[in-house]
């Protein structure tokens, strides 16, 4: 995370002002999330071929002058997730309306109805979006922790690796200690510290999205985990 940049809002505003690096950063962070939402919304639909176009439309909507960003006041209380979800959903609906109009115009006369006509289950999609969002933020926290660990030397890197083995490979601490030929008690101590370091990384990531008091970031962390 670039330390010179304080929040997601400044990033998106800078992207909106034309900064190429910020645009790339915005796309890197959110394109997979938006793509997953659209693909999920349009699965089994002819619109699935429109996912990439709709993704571009979301970016255009976020960056254009007097676009969706103009309607929101960046603050600790305003959820960037809600904002982004709102934009993505509106773009998706517009695409669906366009497709419906197109079908009406072409009027193929087929007796077989189009499954695109089925209404989207907004609640499920919203939950899925939130879950993906939560996963993406948590992965970002893990990545941030890894970067910090690389800068700080072997010990911290080992702690990152400890968490990875524990949660990615599902190995108990005792087994890791055996594999690393370490004292299990010391490793338990490192494990506690690694958890704390991950919490710090998570709060740092969340501060990017929710500028404000640390207590607010903690509340947001709790809410984020509840989305999983």
């Amino acid at each position: 995370m670039d330390p010179s940049r304080s929040t997601c809002w400044t990033m998106i505003r800078s992207a909106s002002d034309g900064a190429a690096a910020d645009r790339d950063e915005f796309a890197r962070r959110y394109a997979p999330l938006i793509r997953a939402y659209l693909a999920n919304r349009w699965k089994n639909s002819s619109l699935s071929a429109e996912v990439e176009d709709a993704l571009q439309e979301v970016f255009v909507e976020c960056f254009r002058n007097q676009g969706a960003l103009e309607g929101v006041a960046p603050s600790a209380s305003h959820s960037f997730r809600s904002y982004l979800y709102g934009v993505v959903r509106n773009v998706a609906r517009r695409a669906e309306q366009r497709a419906a109009k197109q079908r009406e115009r072409t009027g193929s006369g087929s007796t077989t109805p189009h499954l695109d006509a089925l209404p989207a289950d907004e609640e499920t999609l919203s939950r899925e979006f939130d879950r993906n969002w939560a996963q993406s933020v948590l992965r970002e926290a893990s990545e941030l922790m890894r970067r910090h660990a690389e800068q700080n030397g072997t010990e911290t890197s080992r702690r990152w690796d400890l968490l990875r083995l524990r949660f990615q490979n599902g190995m108990p601490i005792r087994e890791i200690a055996k594999q690393w030929e370490e004292d299990p008690a010391k490793l338990h101590h490192d494990y506690a510290r690694a958890r704390q370091e991950f919490k710090d990384a998570l709060l740092e990531v969340l501060a990017f999205y929710h500028p404000g008091a640390p207590a607010a970031a903690k509340r947001e962390a709790e809410e984020l985990i509840s989305l999983l």
Binding site: R139, S142, R164, R195, L224, L228
Partner: peptide, 23 residues
């Protein structure tokens, strides 16, 4: 930093770690 700074730990933190470190 030697020890955990505070006792705050959100509910379901292990799930969060699993999601964060998922392959």
């Amino acid at each position: 930093r030697n020890l955990p700074q505070d006792d705050w730990e959100p509910t379901g933190f292990d799930d969060a770690l699993r999601a964060a470190f998922a392959d």
